[in-house]
Design a protein around this nucleic acid. Structure first.
Length: 323
DNA sequence: AACCACCACAACCGCACGCAT
DNA sequence: AATGCGTGCGGTTGTGGTGGT
């Protein structure tokens, strides 16, 4: 029987206890406590692998694939649960900019996180922001927004949290860099909920396509009417693609970490390019070092007057068609 | 209280690949 | 070389929870 049809029938029956495939006698849908116990118990004594036979031997009326997924994404003892931390968000953004939707590869650098979890994070959080900005999530302008706004803002917040934790106030986040493990301890993921102006990525946005972050602002051109410059979606063409930041502020302003942009892959030698050989602390610090700092003058566009100027500049550019 | 929309996450699916036969 | 099986990956869907009206 077709899987989807089977699921639909079972859904209509409204009874998960009877949620089995008629022909194969296989269960679908949410796992019960008893099933979890059976699977965990079996694996703890006999190990993983050969999932189809494992499912049969463990007395589970599930496919091998289903057992494998349940184990890897949920039951495995080293699975980290809870909110994605700031540090993890930063890593996800950076690694995704390099590898795209290679979720399992990205997950390798976030211990305890599964590819499924990262994928869900990307789809529910990051893509939501792209939608709010009316950007295509794969467009260069959205990638630039991530690189020039979100990531610096995340760094700022990580550093702020780290500083506050060392001054004796309630610890929000702490990256331990003295071991080979990338450890994140005692982060209260909900702490920022009190600040209604900053979302989980530290950004606010409005329907006009303006993104603000921290004390600085920059205009991100809305997708409408500007999609024609959306070129070079693949890594390595960044210097030939539209750069909303440079376009707005003009050539007189040097980006603080120009080399970060000069590398064709968007990465520096010895940075993520050599990531395979790096331990997590080094990887994380390299990412931090490559991101333009919010304390740099480039980002100090704090006053309303400056922001108004930026808007005017963008409008001029739009009118002149100089994109 | 009831309804609806949205969100986060768990689970499923199809496909591709590697390996054994 | 062809086939079947197991596994892993990325995309998609279903479900429960939550907040707004």
């Amino acid at each position: 029987m077709d899987g989807k049809r089977s699921l639909e029938i079972n859904k209509n029956m409204g009874d998960f206890e009877n949620n089995v495939d008629d022909e194969m006698d296989l269960r679908r849908g949410p796992w019960t406590v008893e099933e979890d116990f059976k699977l965990s118990n079996y694996i703890s004594t006999l190990g993983e692998g050969r999932w189809n036979s494992l499912a049969r031997c463990a007395g589970l009326k599930r496919t091998g694939k289903s057992c494998r997924l349940r184990w890897l994404n949920y039951l495995r003892p080293d699975v980290r649960r809870g909110n994605i931390t700031l540090e993890e968000q930063l890593l996800i953004l950076e690694l995704h900019s390099r590898w795209g939707n290679r979720w399992s590869k990205i997950a390798q650098y976030l211990p305890g996180r599964t590819d499924n979890e990262i994928k869900n994070y990307w789809r529910t959080r990051v893509q939501k922001h792209a939608k709010q900005l009316r950007c295509d999530v794969n467009s260069q302008q959205f990638k630039d927004t991530i690189r020039y706004l979100w990531m610096p803002r995340l760094v700022e917040r990580i550093q702020a949290a780290s500083a506050s934790s060392t001054t004796g106030s309630a610890a929000k986040s702490c990256v331990t860099t003295t071991t080979d493990q990338f450890l994140i301890t005692s982060y209260d993921g909900g702490a920022n909920n009190n600040n209604t102006n900053i979302d989980h990525l530290g950004l606010t946005s409005n329907p006009n396509g303006y993104v603000t972050s921290g004390t600085s602002s920059v205009t991100v051109s809305p997708a409408s009417g500007l999609t024609e410059y959306n070129i070079g979606s693949e890594v390595g063409q960044i210097e030939t693609s539209f750069d909303p930041v440079q376009s707005l502020v003009g050539p007189q302003i040097m980006l603080p970490s120009q080399n970060y942009l000069d590398d064709k892959s968007g990465l520096l030698n010895g940075g993520l390019g050599a990531m395979q050989e790096q331990s997590y602390p080094n990887l994380f610090e390299n990412i931090i070092g490559m991101i333009p700092s919010y304390s740099d003058s480039f980002w100090n566009i704090g006053s309303d007057e400056d922001f108004w100027l930026l808007q005017q500049q963008q409008q001029q550019l739009l009118n002149n068609g100089s994109f």
